[in-house]
Each structure stands twice: as C-alpha cells, then as structure tokens.
Computed example of a mutant assay.
Amino acid sequence: MTAHRRLIRRAALAATAGAAALVLAACGGDSEGHDMGSMNSDSAGPSASASAEAGDHNGADISFAKEMIQHHRQAVTMADLADGRASSQEVKDLAAKIKGAQDPEIKTMSGWLTSWGEEVPEDMSDMGHGGHDMSSSMPGMMSGEDMDKLDKASGADFDKMFLEMMVDHHEGAVEMAKTEKADGKYGPAAKLADDVITAQTAEIEQMNKMLGKS
C-alpha cells in the first residue's frame, strides 16, 4: 500500500513539473516573441524616421537652393576673370579658393533640386554677363553692367574692383544663408548654410584687409 502511494505521489509530482515546464516555455516564448517584435520595431523605427527627416524639405529650402546656385555661379564667373586680369597673386589665390569651394556646392544643391522633382535654374553664364540681371534682386548680386566693368578692368584696378564686388557678393550670400537657417527645414541645406556663413565671413574679413593695403 505504501509503495502504491509513493508511485501515485511521484506521478503527480512529475505531472505537476511537466505542466509547470509547459507554462514557463509558453511564457518565455511569448516574452521572447514580444521582445523580438519590439527590437524589430525599434530598429526599423529610427531608421525610417531618419530617412524621412533627411528627405523633409519646404519652400524655403527650394528657394535657397535655386537662388544660391545662381549666386554661386556669378561668384565663379567673377573668380574666373581674376586669372587673366588680376595683378595680385593674393587676389588670384583667393579667386581660386572661392571657385574651388562654390563649384562643388552648386553640384550639391543641383542634386537636391533634382531629387525633389524641381528644375535646376538655367545657367546664365553662357549668355553673357548681362544674363545675371535676371537674378539681380538677390542680395549681393552684381548687375550686368557691373560684370561688364569687371570684365574690362585689369591690373590693380581689377584687383580693387574684384575685392569690393566680392565683399558685397559674399555679404549677400551670408544674408541668404541666415534666411535658410531661420526658415528652412532640410538638414543638409542648413549645414551648407552654416558652411557658407563660416567660410564667406572669413573671406569678407580677408578681403577687407586686402583692400586696406591698397
């Protein structure tokens, strides 16, 4: 009788242990499944969010890109003139630096506009200096008459004219960049605006010092 009770007791314990193991396994599976789902959700979330933020832009970003492309193109045209007209090596070096910085930025902004389904502004530099009059409403832009005068100047006269015009031009670009930072939404555009402000403010100081030497 005692042996029989022991067998019953062992069977009951085994059944209880088995049931407990099944319950734990089920709970563990649910927990693991829940955690995995959370992990998948968390890992996908920030990535999708970051992608959305990177592509987020507004009208101010579009205007900034379109106008700064034209603004930069005129600066590059002015810089190109320096090579054969400037008498100062310092002016030539500065012009090369300006072109080297702004050419890649034109390409970057053109890429943004294309990705947004917007048209890249027509390059007016092949239509003569007067073509720039179409953009003369932008801060710091030279008129066609200004560009013609610079084109005809040479030597020390060119150096002075170039520096004075480029100071005005840079001040206009800084103003446009500050507007983008205040009103824009696209992160890379705000970063480029920061770069414009930093680089061109330093160049304005440099050019003012150069003008003071003359």
Rank of each mutant, 00 (worst) to 15 (best):
S137Q: 12
Q206N: 01
S43R: 10
S31G: 11
G18E: 06
D133N: 15
A25E: 11
L163D: 03
K209W: 02
F158C: 02
G29K: 04
S47K: 11
S43V: 14
A14N: 09
G84E: 15
A44D: 11
E180K: 03
H129Q: 03
K178C: 02
V167H: 02
H132T: 09
A189F: 08
I204P: 00
W112T: 11
K107F: 00
L81P: 01
A60M: 07
M1K: 06
K107Y: 01
G155L: 05
C27L: 15
K92I: 06
E32Q: 14
N58R: 01
G37Y: 11
D194K: 04
G28S: 15
G212T: 02
A21E: 13
D42G: 04
A3G: 10
D195N: 08
G55V: 10
S38F: 12
Q70C: 03
I106N: 01
C27G: 15
G128L: 05
M165K: 09
D151L: 08
E32V: 14
H170G: 06
D157L: 07
D195H: 07
A190Y: 06
A75M: 05
G37V: 02
D93R: 10
E180D: 08
L81M: 15
A199T: 10
G45C: 03
K149W: 06
V76W: 06
W116G: 08
A14S: 14
M124L: 13
I204F: 07
T77H: 09
G28V: 14
D123L: 02
G184V: 08
K178L: 05
G140F: 08
L192T: 10
G144N: 07
D35W: 14
H4E: 14
E171L: 00
M134P: 02
S31Y: 14
K152Y: 06
D133Q: 04
L163C: 01
S136N: 04
K178T: 11
D159R: 03
R73F: 03
I69A: 05
H132P: 02
L22G: 14
D30H: 13
S41F: 12
F158S: 04
